[in-house]
Design a protein around this nucleic acid. Structure first.
Lengths: 186, 186, 186, 186
DNA sequence: GATGAATGAGGTTTCATTCAT
DNA sequence: AATGAATGAAACCTCATTCAT
């Protein structure tokens, strides 16, 4: 395994365990089983690892979406899509929290949307197949779908304790809401 | 002006300029024109200022919503609401970025949703007046509305440069989408 | 005693003991009985102490010259002057070595001659009283006297082991040489 | 070109640019276009290069003196000699500064005078031809001549900005002064 | 209550040195 | 002989925190 990837893996692990502020470079190095100096050959600081971590997560979402074999009614398809986001958010909630904290601290905030480009693009293709007339530009619709799905997933898994119990119901509500937004304008 | 408020103001400014990680207590103290020691009389650490900052922003949104005299069609009312969020996000974009970064770093992530309670509550009342039957629970609908409006405002103002130009159109798309989501189930 | 002076004293001591390269900031702090952090309140790096050290030595020379009550023949007066330089060089040879090494490493080489201004000035007054016509500008003569006296003192005390035995004779030679240079043009 | 010489050349360049303290072995290796490890095949440390650098400069002076075909009056001959020192100092001022700093840092201070032996020796022969009776030992006179010429050249080229303009006059003053010192005792 | 000079623990960062290639 | 990625000891330097004023 490449040293760079070792560092990214180790960073995710240590950051999520101890938090960004309390993580020392030496912790990451130890977790990656490399020398402290070696870390600096690949990243100039611990925060500089954040974009690389973000890329990993975005890649997971993209991969999740691409393995979908969309079938059935619109609401069924939406359910499948939502499941991808919810599942990945659920399994990587610390990492997501991490990315928000980390990206905003570096000067990489702008990169965030660029990274999402593949996701938006996927939704674009999806929507093209699903809707016909466009009262709303497909680009904007894509971004709203992604934004709403993610913010809901975050509300459910990252922030609120109670919500986790309402998981299923919130997913169902989300499907209904999205379906309405999409079909109304199809 | 109260010293505590001076510190909050100064923190926003310095955090925004230098980032949380690189901000020293001494920076905040200098910006607030107080002694380093004085800081500790009001806050135990720099991260402890974050919730206070967040409260200020949530209060702004709440105040903005409460001054609305909702009139006209649903879409006109939604437009007014959206304008509140967009305007405040626009004017305080650095502070919002800050809050995401800061809250996730402290153990205050959970508090975030609690703080939003008044906002959700306001939407709850709003929706009660606007819709009648509920396929979707009003609580969930409230959260989706807030989530979607905010994530869109963030996409427009915080992340993507190009989007700022599409401001008006994205707002219009948002109104349409929300309206569909609401009326479909009313 | 002022902290700044404590640091200068301690620096001279530690530098001469261990050499510049091997001296750690912590060594100086310990020798000065202050905290490591305190060092940085007064100097940004160990090399930044060098000009302050140099000033101390120049002040010693100046003080030595100013206590002279020049009397007797020219050669007697020259002997007195030379003794000042030789004595101070002898007693502070490590410090002088230090200064050469230290000043050249910082960007303070230019300051060196500025520091010497009081010495040159003293010689200027001295020569004015001693010579009358000027084939050589008094300014240049001053600098040559200082340069020759110092380079000889350094040859005797800093560099060459054997020379230390010839101390007296080299002083005598120096008096003769200087006298010739001065009187020839008087 | 030999690797050893490559290293010496590169060291002069890098030392001059960054200062001895801030120069890393890797900087020298990069400047010499060799591997870091290769450096150690030729020198055990960066300071160990200093004597080699010094030798190069002393060799230049010696070579300069040996090519002189001393003719004409004493003052003409002195002018020629002085020109050699001034010219070499002028062209290699950074290197000279470097050597002072470097030698004093190593344990090679003593070697300095040994290296100068050929120069002193050359002056010895020169003075033997020029003066006859010796109030001052020729050895001492040699050293004073070298010391005065060099310290003047350094004052002119290394330290003081203004002095560079007085170059010619300081040279003339130097000739007069030396001539007086020599002839008075011949 | 307010201050800021002083502190020193401990994280950051460097870089001489090694050694497998 | 030559290399340069990897190392980690050890220096640097910061900065939260204290406390005498």
């Amino acid at each position: 395994m490449e040293k760079r990837d070792l560092i990214i893996e180790a960073s995710i692990q240590v950051f999520t365990e101890k938090g960004i502020e309390k993580t020392k470079i030496s912790d990451i190095a130890k977790a990656a089983s490399i020398g402290q100096g070696t870390f600096y050959l690949y990243f100039p600081s611990k925060l500089a690892v954040m974009p690389a971590i973000a890329e990993v997560m975005v890649a997971k979402i993209e991969a999740g979406l691409k393995t979908l074999q969309l079938q059935g009614s619109l609401s069924q398809q939406l359910t499948q899509i939502i499941d991808v986001f919810f599942e990945i958010t659920k399994q990587n909630k610390e990492t997501f929290t991490l990315i928000y904290a980390g990206l905003t601290q570096t000067q990489h905030v702008q990169e965030w949307e660029n990274m999402y480009e593949p996701i938006y693009s996927w939704f674009h293709h999806f929507l093209e197949r699903v809707i016909e007339t466009k009262t709303i530009k497909i680009e904007h619709l894509s971004k709203m779908l992604v934004g709403l799905i993610e913010s809901t997933a975050e509300q459910v898994y990252l922030y609120d304790k109670e919500e986790r119990e309402n998981e299923l119901e919130r997913k169902r509500s989300l499907v209904l809401f999205l379906e309405a937004g999409i079909t109304k304008h199809s």
